[in-house]
Amino acid sequence: MLAAERRDYLLARLHSDGKLVAKDVAAELGIAEDNIRRDLREMASAGLCQRVYGGALPVSPAVADYATRATVAVDGKERVARAAAALIRPGMTVLLDGGTTALAVTSALPRDLRATIVTHSPTVAAALVDHPTVEVYVLGGRLFKHSAVTSGAAAAEAARLVTADLFLLGVTGVHHEAGLTTGDADEAAMKRTLASRAADVYVLASSEKIGAASPFVVLPATDVSAVITDADPGHPVVEELRRDGIAIIEA
């Protein structure tokens, strides 16, 4: 089998199985595992997969630029946003992450809700300007343009002064083994800091993020209160998350 044929085969298996285990594929094809690992490195460099220990997972479409992500899975993000907004009770202090799903949460909030939203997303804060009864606090810092959020030392220091009832966490990948992942190390660190300041953490995960992975781990999936998703309840990763004791809120 030629290298190009192997790559096509690996891509097809990744699509059908949702993951690749290098030693298993090597055994099936009767070739050295090092060849498969080299193929996976090349595929990862081309943005076709996300390498993990022992193999590869689908790459998340949520690593695209902000404008592109705004057009991906719009209906699913709105369903997730509505389910997330329903968790916010009057009087709560809520940490709201950045990203397109978090932005959809602002539109799903009841107009009579009295609550405090703390965010490191200027876009999210601007969307709440016209909300009549929600107080908004913005955490300042260096602007990470990919996700339109602040990060870095100043933002993390400001976040450590907050105590919240819940954190609505946005990620680019959700997997029972790879965990909750995103595409930037500083952004992952900021998300961990925000998660440490909330009593409960809920993951905003529209279906395209389930089973996908990105380079940097935010948290293990077992460290959150629940995953909010519109993915099929029978999705293999959703079933694995449930088996690991992780609550799933169906959107």
Rank of each mutant, 00 (worst) to 15 (best):
S147D: 13
K77P: 15
T119H: 07
P110Y: 04
A56T: 13
C49Q: 13
A83H: 08
S207M: 08
G98A: 09
A159K: 00
G179E: 10
K209P: 01
A198I: 08
M190R: 00
T116M: 04
H131T: 14
T106M: 02
H235A: 14
V203I: 10
E42T: 09
K77Q: 11
G179I: 05
H235D: 14
D24S: 14
A70I: 05
H15S: 10
I36N: 03
S206Q: 09
A231I: 00
A22S: 14
A195R: 07
L169Y: 07
R243L: 05
L11K: 03
L241M: 04
R51E: 10
E157M: 08
L204G: 14
D34H: 08
G211R: 02
A27W: 05
A126P: 05
V227C: 06
R160Q: 14
D75R: 15
L29T: 11
A205G: 15
M43D: 12
V171T: 14
L11P: 09
D130K: 06
A12Y: 06
V217N: 15
G47T: 15
M1W: 01
I249Q: 07
Y137H: 15
E33N: 12
T101G: 01
V124S: 00
V224P: 09
V21A: 01
K19M: 08
V238C: 03
L95R: 11
T106W: 04
R242A: 08
P236L: 01
H175V: 13
H235S: 14
D223F: 06
R79C: 11
S121M: 01
A108Q: 13
I36R: 07
A22V: 06
A64W: 11
F216R: 11
L219M: 05
D97I: 01
Y9Q: 12
D75W: 12
L219T: 15
L169I: 11
S16Q: 14
A108M: 04
V94N: 10
T182V: 04
H235Y: 09
E28K: 12
T193E: 00
G170M: 04
G47L: 02
I88R: 02
E33C: 13
L161D: 09
D8C: 12
T150R: 00
T193P: 02
